[in-house]
């Protein structure tokens, strides 16, 4: 078992009333799964991903990640945990504009205090693998959307995470670019990386081996 959510509730107060963002979500994810979370805008897809990624808090429920109970951990520990095991891919890529492709990919390694020589080797491998060696000195603004997302995925993968969380990874891309990205995810999944993606698109969801439907913060049976 990679992670397990038990009866997770998350709400915000609006005019004295609770508005539920996540409403009694329970979920078990085994290593090697490829899960697609689907649902309309505002259904809680991103919130759920953020909770799984430990970027967001929740009010009630339990969350175990690799047998550690996340809800009891201090921020420092939590950050160590996700730094070690989780990679993020965003719809808007979220590359650092001031850094080159090479440096963007390298950044997570810096935060893991990996030695310079090893960093070089790891980044070089990654550039090689995604065929972007020639672009390593370019800045994000000089790349197309698809290429930027490729860098985003390379960056997510560099620290060898067990889990990749992808929030609408193809949302800003055209269909051809999107397809390439999805094929890449499939490949990664076959290599053993667990992937959870949030998506609008039925066709993208099909790449996964399990689909979870959300509506107003609750799971809906398909």
């Amino acid at each position: 078992m990679l992670l397990q959510l038990n009866h997770i509730y998350k709400w915000v107060k609006q005019g004295g009333k609770r508005v539920f963002l996540l409403n009694d979500i329970s979920l078990q994810v085994k290593e090697g799964e490829f899960i697609s979370i689907m649902g309309p805008s505002g259904s809680g897809k991103s919130t759920l991903l953020n909770v799984i990624g430990m970027l967001d808090e929740f009010q009630e429920g339990e969350y175990d990640f690799l047998d550690e109970s996340v809800h009891t951990l201090k921020e420092k520990h939590r950050s160590k945990l996700y730094k070690e095991y989780i990679g993020f891919v965003f719809q808007a890529y979220h590359l650092i504009d001031e850094l080159t492709v090479y440096e963007n990919i390298e950044t997570p390694l810096l935060y893991k205090n990996i030695k310079s020589a090893e960093r070089k080797a790891l980044v070089a491998d990654m550039l090689d693998r995604f065929n972007i060696v020639g672009k390593k000195d370019l800045f994000p603004a000089q790349l197309s959307g698809g290429q930027q997302q490729l860098v985003g995925i390379a960056r997510a993968l560099i620290a060898k995470p067990k889990l990749i969380l992808a929030d609408e990874p193809t949302g800003n891309l055209n269909s051809k670019q999107g397809e390439e990205i999805m094929r890449l995810f499939k490949e990664l999944n076959q290599e053993g990386v667990t992937i959870i993606q949030a998506t609008h698109s039925e066709s993208n969801a099909e790449y996964g081996n399990r689909i979870i439907n959300l509506l107003d913060g609750s799971k809906v049976k398909a």
Binding site: L55, K76, K83, H94, I96, D97, T107, Y111, K112
Partner: peptide, 16 residues
């Protein structure tokens, strides 16, 4: 703020 957000997501501690 965007850069800070990304860095935090990538595992930067506040100290860093």
């Amino acid at each position: 703020s965007k850069e800070i957000g990304i860095r935090k997501v990538l595992g930067s501690q506040r100290k860093q």
